[in-house]
Design a protein around this nucleic acid. Structure first.
Length: 422
RNA sequence: GUGGCUGUAGUUCAAUCGGUUAGAGCACUGGAUUGUGGUUCCAGGUGUUGUGGGUUCGAGUCCCAUCAGCCACCCCA
């Protein structure tokens, strides 16, 4: 072990092994299918960006930029960060490449690894894989609902049933000025009972006070004034409309006034889907509206909304419920060659099969029929194709159905049609 | 980043109070059956006990460090 394991995957990272990779593919396929149905197009951005992009967009007081970024300097002393999230890069690219024309909507999706320097745990990794969408160029509440609809449909299509969709509105900067004041004065009354983190939150980010997991703070927060009661008229109207559209679409949701997304750029609609069969690391996906981000990053005033979620969490939820990831890849046919005389014929055959797109395996290093049969069974191939002296003499091939255990000998010309038919 | 638990064949787990050559199932390979796999029987290697130090006549076992995983906090995907 020690010699073979001199090198290990870095802490918090993992290899997606051959026995697992089809699960990633399955989820990717499902995601692409829904993206296609909703008319989203893929965008691929670099895995690292100048660190400033994330500081400006995600917010300099958030945990992500304060302590979770992988930052490095290149040979010309430029400071970069491995992307901790996907929205800021997409917005940067949209601005840089003038993808967004006023009055139009851009619908983009992305897939790829993200990086956060957290302490690893099950369901929490330093390199993890996300899927996400961004709907850019509309402030209409219908589009909030449509993005949520996409999320809901995706999770549902994977077969996940134990999940909960929660939505909230965190208002706009204007509402926040008023609401933050109310929060500060409310929590200040309980200052001695609050945890040290919450002491800081009073000064830096009052809304996060609602988010604290410390039980004492939680009890206090339970009676805190709710943002929903402090939305200005436009925000209130917007939120009610989002809810109405969700109702029209027959999407079940709960309103949870304690949802405060961890990134600074969100405004108005915020939502999360959580895995209800799990107590920790149970956020499947989360998103919200970010109408101010384009301006923050130097673009024109462009409203947008999106969400992102993690592959690992989905796989965890699916495995826990024994859900199907499609078929594990296996060959259609396994060629078994008996005797040296059949080798040239066999090679001709395997060439023909592969040319026709039939997934065929053959192991020239296994000699005995028994060993080859065993290898065929282990490969999970549907059919074993046996070619020996008898078959050569009669220009036939013996086909054995490895599940049913029955076999028949057919003329060689019939083989391709047989395999294509079944 | 804080606190705790754990680390033994490929894998799941044993190994008495610190005692001599570290064991078993599954998996793997070969054979029984040179034209038949998933059943059975037989045989085979499974290893620097995560790594590095220390204590001891003697360490898988005790101590320290380190790495990794897990749990809780935190954070979120």
């Amino acid at each position: 072990m020690s010699k073979a394991n001199l090198y290990k995957a870095p802490r918090g990272t993992f290899d997606i092994l051959p026995g697992q990779s089809y699960k990633w593919q399955w989820i990717t396929e499902k995601f692409r299918e829904i993206a296609s149905v909703f008319n989203y197009r893929e965008i691929v951005t670099p895995i690292f960006e100048v660190v400033d992009l994330f500081e400006r967009s995600v917010g300099s007081t958030t945990d992500i930029v304060e302590k979770e970024m992988y930052i490095f300097t290149d040979r010309k002393d430029r400071v970069f960060a491995l992307r901790p999230e996907g929205t800021a890069p997409v917005v940067r690219s949209t601005i840089e490449n003038h993808l967004q024309k006023d009055g139009n909507i851009s619908k983009l999706f992305y897939l790829g690894p993200m990086f956060r320097y957290d302490r690893p745990q099950k369901g929490r990794y330093r390199q993890f894989y996300q899927y996400g969408i961004e709907l850019i160029g509309s402030r209409h509440p219908y589009n909030d609902a449509e993005v949520i609809w996409f999320a809901d449909m995706f999770v549902r299509n994977l077969g996940i049933k134990d999940f909960c969709l929660e939505i909230n509105s965190i208002g706009c900067p204007k509402c926040s000025i008023e609401y933050d004041k109310v929060l500060v004065s409310f929590f200040s009354k309980y200052k001695p009972d609050l945890c040290p983190d919450c002491h800081n939150r009073i000064a830096t980010n009052p809304k996060r006070l609602l988010d604290c997991k410390v039980s004492k703070c939680r009890t206090i927060a339970k009676d805190a004034p709710l943002i929903l009661d402090y939305l200005d008229q436009e925000c209130d109207y917007h939120f009610k409309n989002v809810c109405s559209y969700l109702d029209y679409l027959n999407i079940k949701y709960d309103i949870n006034p304690f949802i405060v997304r961890g990134l600074d750029y969100y405004n108005r609609t915020a939502f999360e889907i959580t895995d209800t069969s799990r107590k920790t690391q149970n956020a499947l996906l989360g998103g919200g509206r970010y109408d101010g981000l384009f301006a923050t990053l130097g673009g024109s005033d462009t409203p947008a909304i999106g969400f992102a979620g993690g592959f690992e969490r989905l796989i965890g939820a699916m495995e826990q419920n024994n859900l199907c990831f499609g078929n594990e890849p296996a060959p259609d046919a396994y060629l078994i060659i008996i005797g040296d005389r059949a080798v040239p014929e066999g090679l001709k055959l395997i060439m023909e099969l592969r040319d026709k797109g039939i997934k065929t395996e053959y192991n020239i290093e296994k000699n005995s029929l028994k060993a080859q049969m065993k290898a065929a069974a282990n490969s999970k191939a549907r059919y074993a194709l046996m070619l020996g002296d008898d078959e050569i003499d009669t220009k036939t091939i013996t086909i054995k159905d490895l599940d049913k255990g029955i076999q028949n000998t057919y003329p060689q010309e019939y083989l391709i049609t047989f395999l294509i038919k079944s």
